[in-house]
Design a protein around this nucleic acid. Structure first.
Lengths: 144, 144
DNA sequence: TCATTTTATTTACCTGGGTAAATAATCACA
DNA sequence: TGTGATTATTTACCCAGGTAAATAAAATGA
């Protein structure tokens, strides 16, 4: 019988461990994990409004502002005014677009190596169980 | 087929969500999640050296120093010099000891509610799969 | 003994999560 | 049209993770 606090403690630990590994890998590109998350997002969806980004990533607006300011300084992205003058539209720089495939591949390899002990079925099951956490009694979470 | 980045993205999200919930609950005690982790630790093991704490929690020493300083200010713990004058021994205050059982119970209830969609077997399996992450090929992780 | 190395803790500074409140632009509608 | 509400972003300030380097005490060993 496993105690609930053991589960949450280990969940926390593993996430810290993973973040550390990702940051270690990204160091050579002078990037950090949450910056990478945003780059990945922009690669997937193309130019986005700041609001689109933080809503998609499920973080707060100020957190995203701060990270984007840093990324603009280090020339990963640009932020231009939208037709609605309140909005900022975020775009990858050409330098970012050039490096993206390389970084994407090395992150992919790292992630695969972190999951190498789990079969596809186990990964799917893990994903399913993970998604159930926080779902209230009576509700149902459907994983697509 | 689930992409590895989906798994890690959701892992990250869930941990943020859980931490937010715990912080929300702890707000009434003017406590924060990682302070609670330390209290829980001291409750389990009794007085500990700072080094024991950060090694057990698997975080860095400066992180622990900072949190302990805050907890000392808010009267959750004391730090006294050990016989080895480099060491600091951390103890719960009597106020902390009084409140601990109450807080422990409400955290326990929160954790159970977060896991309410998972049976004991699923929880155990989740724990097992979680532990496999980061384990290198060829190595083996044994869960006790 | 005393110089060197190791160990425990701290300081300074970085990223990245959060909240509350301030701007600034747009929208809604009387 | 113009006022009030809403929306997008920012600013200021928490907590919590990290690294690098400083300090101070203890351990080691020639």
């Amino acid at each position: 019988m496993i105690s609930t606090s053991d589960i949450f403690h280990n969940l926390h630990q593993q996430v810290r461990f993973i973040t550390k590994e990702v940051n270690e890998l990204l160091k050579q590109y002078h990037l950090y994990s949450s910056q990478w998350t945003i780059l990945y997002c922009l690669d997937q969806f193309g130019p986005m409004k700041q609001t689109d980004i933080w809503k998609y990533l499920n973080v707060e607006a100020p957190t995203t502002t701060r990270t984007l300011v840093r990324m603009e300084k280090s020339n990963w992205i640009t932020r231009t005014e939208g037709s609605d003058k309140r909005e900022r539209i975020v775009r990858l720089t050409s330098e970012a677009e050039d490096l993206l495939p390389i970084i994407k591949e090395s992150i992919q390899k790292l992630e695969e190596s972190l999951l190498s002990q789990l079969s596809s079925e186990e990964q799917a099951h893990f994903y399913y169980l993970l998604k159930q956490i926080g779902v209230k009694k009576g509700e149902r979470s459907i994983v697509y």
